[in-house]
Nucleic acid binder design. Structure first.
Length: 475
RNA sequence: GUUCCCUUCGUCUAGAGGCCUAGGACACGUCCCUUUCACGGAUGUAACACGGGUUCGAAUCCCGUAGGGAACGCCA
């Protein structure tokens, strides 16, 4: 039997981070089994579904590198088939028309609740002659759920789960306007698509019992279910807006690489021994539904940062340069900037956790004038800074063609030894501030080499002017 | 309210009755490296929710308790 899995998002918002993980699990399992992975857009709720959300789902899945077999299936396009199956079930005596009004249904729920029972439909039309139907009322179609006994599902993650059938009411398959309910559409589509394994959030675990009733009525074997726990925020509560990012697009904007997001998400709730860093292709070779955890897990941005740091170092310089430039639309970039960025990338990418940090750290290579941040200003206010900068200026001016890290290093150490009792920081910090506008940067002497003698001298001179304007003089 | 699910360091997890004085990763502490911040290296703190069983032996199996979550729509 060929394994066929699916990911079935409803396009009522952007692709949720939890949904992405569900897609990843389905994708991995199909790859592991040499099967297929299908995509179905559950757009039957016309009020809430939007084209923008559909586009975002495609875009984010592609960004993550999750590809699906064949074309995406739109649930809305299958409405006629859903109705056909419901009508067929009525003909076979597995379902029936119900003419109850909203008011009657509400009364039933209230009555059940008052008796301490689950609010549900009381099955009044189950065995009633349709000829007695009130005139002018469009009926819904309800399933005949089993009246007694129990339903058992062997869930690949949760284990054997049993529910007494007394809990299942005759829920609606087809609405009075002829449209299918979610419960019905899902089952008909899964059946028609030949889905063998349904991996989804455990908020659907209860639904699985209702869906099994429909599969049974249709005479189609029920797929294997694997209900995975939801992802929670750092505080353990369900992921919501106040936790910050929820959608894949937001993680992208925050500067995380798709391979890092995939790795992190896969490791959340699934494990292969102690393995931490792996590609989704590697995970696919290892993947077993039984290795998914039954308990919920929380999003840990610190760990995501760590994983992202790892992949940032592995990433090609050209790719990162493009990402950095895309994050600095305000800058006018010329070839000189590009060359510096390429030369500096090696040291740059070894220190950043996200593309945002990387872009911020790279900025001094992409500007012609440096602005000093608070700490850099303070460094330039140090009472030795002005003299130190003069020494540096003079020493670097003499370097000429040998403007290399090693030569600069020798010159700078000599200044520290001659004037500051060997305290390198006395020389390094003002130099760093003048070249980068910050007190935190990649190795500054290498950066000076990359900037080149002319640009380095220009920035030192600019710093000397700045210090003069801010009341600094020779001591 | 009814039904269902879950529970190992702060977090993600390993663990399938003896390999567990419970291992790894992130985070955190200390030290080393060092021109800053990082990185890297070393090292340390830290968990089987609780209570009963079963067993020669339980983190692992069973039953309760507590805590957390989900579902009960002509939403998906």
């Amino acid at each position: 039997m060929t394994v066929i899995t699916r990911f079935a998002p409803s396009p009522t918002g952007f692709l949720h981070i939890g949904g992405a993980r569900t897609a990843l699990f389905n994708w991995c399992y199909s790859k592991k089994m040499g099967g297929k992975f299908l995509l179905r857009i559950e757009d039957t709720d016309k009020e809430r579904s939007t084209q923008a959300a559909i586009d975002a789902i495609f875009r984010d899945l592609k960004w993550l590198g999750i590809d699906w077999d064949g074309d995406a299936i739109y649930q809305s396009s299958r409405a006629a088939r859903h109705a056909e199956v419901a009508q067929d079930l009525v003909k076979k005596g597995k379902a029936y028309f119900c003419y109850c009004s909203q008011e009657e249904l509400e009364a039933m729920r209230a009555e059940a609740q008052a008796k301490g029972e689950q609010p549900r439909y009381n099955r009044m039309w189950r065995d009633r002659d349709p000829a007695t139907a009130p005139a002018g009322v469009k009926p819904v179609i309800r399933i005949k759920a089993p009246l007694d006994g129990e339903t058992v599902i062997d869930d690949a993650v949760q284990g054997r789960v049993t529910v007494p059938n007394s809990q299942l009411d005759d829920f609606i398959l087809l609405r009075s306007d002829g449209s299918p309910t979610y419960m019905h559409a899902v089952v008909v589509d899964d059946a028609d698509m030949g889905i063998t394994h349904v991996v989804r959030g455990d908020d659907h675990l209860n639904n699985a019992f209702r869906q099994k009733v429909i599969f049974d009525a249709m005479g189609v074997p029920c797929p294997t279910f694997a209900h995975i726990p939801l992802i929670h925020g750092a505080d353990g509560a369900k992921l919501s807006k106040r936790h910050g990012a929820q959608s894949v697009g937001e993680f992208k904007d925050m500067g995380y690489l798709p391979e890092a997001v995939c790795n992190y998400l896969l490791r959340l709730g699934w494990s292969h021994g102690d393995d931490e860093l792996f590609t989704k292709e590697q995970a696919a070779q290892w993947f077993e539904l039984g290795d998914i955890n039954a308990g919920p897990s929380r999003l840990d941005m610190k760990k995501l940062d760590h994983v992202n740091t790892h992949y940032l170092r592995l990433a090609e310089d050209e790719r990162l340069a493009a990402e950095i430039l895309a994050r600095h639309p305000e800058l006018k970039i010329d070839d000189e900037h590009r060359i510096r960025l390429a030369a500096g990338m090696h040291d740059l990418k070894a220190r950043a956790a996200t593309l945002i940090q990387l872009a911020a750290e790279a900025k001094f290579y992409l500007v012609d004038e440096v602005a000093y941040d608070e700490k850099a200003s303070a460094a330039l206010h140090d009472h030795d800074a002005h003299n130190a900068m003069h020494h540096i200026y003079d020493a670097l001016a003499r370097l000429g063609a040998d403007f290399k890290e090693a030569a600069i290093d020798t010159a700078v150490r000599k200044i520290a030894a001659d004037h500051y009792e060997g305290k390198l920081a006395k020389v390094m910090m003002p130099l760093r501030a003048s070249l980068t506008g910050s007190t935190s940067s990649p190795p500054i002497l290498k950066a000076a080499e990359i900037l080149g003698q002319a640009e380095t001298m220009k920035r030192i001179k600019a710093a000397l002017h700045w210090m003069h304007d801010h009341g600094h003089h020779h001591h």
